[in-house]
Design a protein around this nucleic acid. Structure first.
Lengths: 244, 244
DNA sequence: CGGAATTTGTGCGTATGTATG
DNA sequence: ACATACATACGCACAAATTCC
């Protein structure tokens, strides 16, 4: 984190730029030897700002639960982690990261039914206006939110999927109960953007945080689309891995 | 773009948050029918801010060359793009996006030689301390910077790759000249973070902007690692596509 | 062509947020 | 905690350019 310059008058406050950089450094393991952030005076010198500004930045990180300031000792690092998500034909939420955490859970936030928009119809290869079941879910690892997803399923085949999902907490198991023993990921699109209001709430992020977005299509073994989903991951908690 | 809420007092100025959202909407094609951004008064109403604030946001986008305001008429959209990068066994910079832009170019920023670190040795399956050639490159599409990459090659096989790359402007062609007719992408890791100082300069971004990072290993057809690279993409200009 | 409506451009005063010392 | 300087955001008013009837 040597000599990084901070930009003034760009619409992003100095304390936030600095908070973001310190968060990145922590995730990168730059302070692993001591388990602490450098003293405020040293950070102020490094970034070329007043100590007040550093305190604002550390205050924001403390609010996120990433660091904890202790008078007389310093600012301790509370948490750093980045889950690795494999993206492949067999992409599932819990399976790929099962060995990295103690517990994975998926919670149903909302369920509704709607008519397929032009875009959804194109993705799921159905007619516009076809009835779809829409599920809003939250993925957690060790009780910390990792991703929020919106998924659409053709209502004629999967009308009752909300109830089954609520009971099992798993898309894979819900599909099995509804006569789809297996399914495969056909294509995944990955983009990144700033967290929106819903991300801040559901994923417990702070404004300016980054979300990685995947848009994915799953089909059954007969190549018939069964699920289209848009997932939003807290970018500083995950990494995607593509095996070719 | 209906009813998106803007966050106050978060260290990110309202005009910057709004500029980012409008840029996203433009890239998403929300204003394609008219080719124009909605009037300032309407945007002010939608975002719940003063018209001056909207003007600051549009001013920033005008500075980026994305929109152009014309008195009496409105604010015209000058450019919108999000290049789609396929990630597969045959991932190359120019090939996948060739049909989306008029011109792709790759520029050599710097070249040097260094000893393999523990991490690089692990990735390239060589001994720590083995000599490596390191290339810093900048990928451009239609004269706009899209990605910056650092690549490492075993120096014993590819000692002269810097000169060949400078001449051809292509890794693929450089490999061919150096006796590697073909190579494949083994694994790609994808993360996202805030732009650092180098990103701001090379990719012409503003602070708070997002970069998508890929870490990738390429091998020759005998499964011998030939290149390890870390690339940083301007997140609002690209999209990754994984085909399974 | 006239004139109203629409839309961007500009100025000023004020309140609050950010950053320094 | 206090004083200072500048950036951000608001509200109001009016000017200038374009469009449309």
């Amino acid at each position: 984190m040597a000599g990084q310059k901070i930009q003034r008058q760009t619409g992003v406050a100095l304390w936030r730029q600095i908070a973001d950089r310190i968060r990145t450094s922590i995730n990168h393991g730059d302070f692993d030897e001591t388990g602490m952030v450098p003293p405020e005076t040293m950070l102020a010198l490094q970034f070329g700002v007043n100590r007040h500004t550093i305190r604002s930045a550390l205050g924001a990180l403390a609010q996120e639960g990433i660091v904890r300031a202790v008078q007389g000792r310093g600012t301790l690092i509370e948490r750093k982690e980045r889950l690795s998500f494999p993206i492949s034909k067999r992409t599932r939420f819990s399976q790929g990261i099962g060995d990295q955490v103690r517990e994975t859970r998926s919670v149903l936030l909302a369920a509704s039914e709607e008519a397929a928009s032009v875009e959804l119809a194109r993705q799921l290869k159905i007619n516009t206006g076809t009835r779809l079941v829409r599920l809003e879910t939250l993925g957690q690892a060790d009780h910390r939110p990792v991703s929020r997803a919106t998924s659409w399923f053709p209502a004629d085949r999967f009308g009752g999927i909300a109830d089954v999902y609520r009971a099992t907490g798993s898309i894979t198991k819900a599909f099995k109960e509804l006569g789809v023993p297996d399914y495969v990921r056909v294509v995944t699109e990955i983009t990144a953007t700033h967290a929106d209001e819903g991300d801040l709430a559901d994923l417990q992020l702070s404004p300016g945080a980054i979300v990685l977005i995947t848009q994915a299509l799953n089909t059954d073994l007969d190549n018939v689309p069964v699920q289209y989903s848009i997932s939003r991951f807290a970018a500083d908690r995950v990494r995607f891995t593509v095996e070719n």
